[in-house]
């Protein structure tokens, strides 16, 4: 996929949970290599939108077109406690049928970039929340994605870790030509690393404003 081509296209997306309307006629386009932020209050439906883009939930109405492999980083850090951090990352790559040597390569540069090298052989309960979150991001990267979906990647992290992670995400995006969609309830955290910011209203979420 070439830069400038459409990577994600969402048209009139509406989502209901039972009778409750969560997303209302969302339309947005993300081009290849672009970093897009989606901000809005807690409970607005940002995570639902991201899960629909990731293909984990179906939309009630509307169309979602995703061109390229998707790497999804959920809001809750989910790592298998019986595996080391390296074991978790390699499992993600294996399930996505990424060759072992390619996964090892991603672990090498990704761990250096994210400052994870010394923790790779530890288990999730032996490391900090920030390290676990970085591992989750590296897990998604090991699946060789073209589109990276990050759900509240800075939640629960201290200022220094947030700054380091922002830099790492920005560098990864440029070096791997990734398309990135980041969802957060805190605009300040995502503003420095996105090209375009969509602001959603509270339930049902509609696009209120687009900042470029």
């Amino acid at each position: 996929m070439e830069a400038g081509e459409v990577a994600v296209k969402i048209e009139n997306l509406t989502k209901y949970y039972g009778q409750e309307k969560i997303l209302d006629s969302i339309t947005l386009t993300v081009k290849q290599g672009e970093a897009v932020g989606i901000a809005g209050p807690n409970g607005a439906g940002k995570s639902t939108l991201l899960r629909i883009i990731a293909g984990l939930e179906p939309p009630t109405q509307g169309k979602v077109i995703v061109r390229g492999r998707v790497g999804y980083v959920p809001q809750e850090v989910i790592l298998l406690p019986w595996r080391t951090l390296r074991g978790n990352i390699l499992l993600a790559a294996k399930l996505r049928k990424i060759p072992r040597h390619r996964a090892e390569e991603v672990i090498r540069w990704g761990a250096r970039l994210l400052g994870l090298e010394e923790y790779l052989n530890k288990r999730p309960y032996q490391v900090s929340g920030g390290t676990r979150r970085k591992t989750q991001i590296l897990m998604a990267l090991a699946t060789d994605p073209e589109i990276l979906l990050l759900d509240e990647p800075f939640t629960g992290l201290d200022r220094d870790t947030i700054t380091a992670l922002q830099k790492a995400i920005d560098r990864m995006r440029r070096s791997e030509n990734l398309t990135i969609i980041i969802v957060s309830h805190m605009i300040d955290e995502i503003l420095p690393i996105v090209d375009k910011l969509y602001i959603l209203t509270h339930k049902p979420a509609r696009i209120k404003e687009i900042l470029e």
């Binding site: 990731a54 989910i78 298998l80 993600a92």
Partner: peptide, 25 residues
Amino acid sequence: DQYMILARSLGATKLQELTYFILPG
């Protein structure tokens, strides 16, 4: 349940869910 969310987000088959997520758990 979170392990199952992870399994699905990584495109695991039913057999892989059993082998890598349920049995060790």
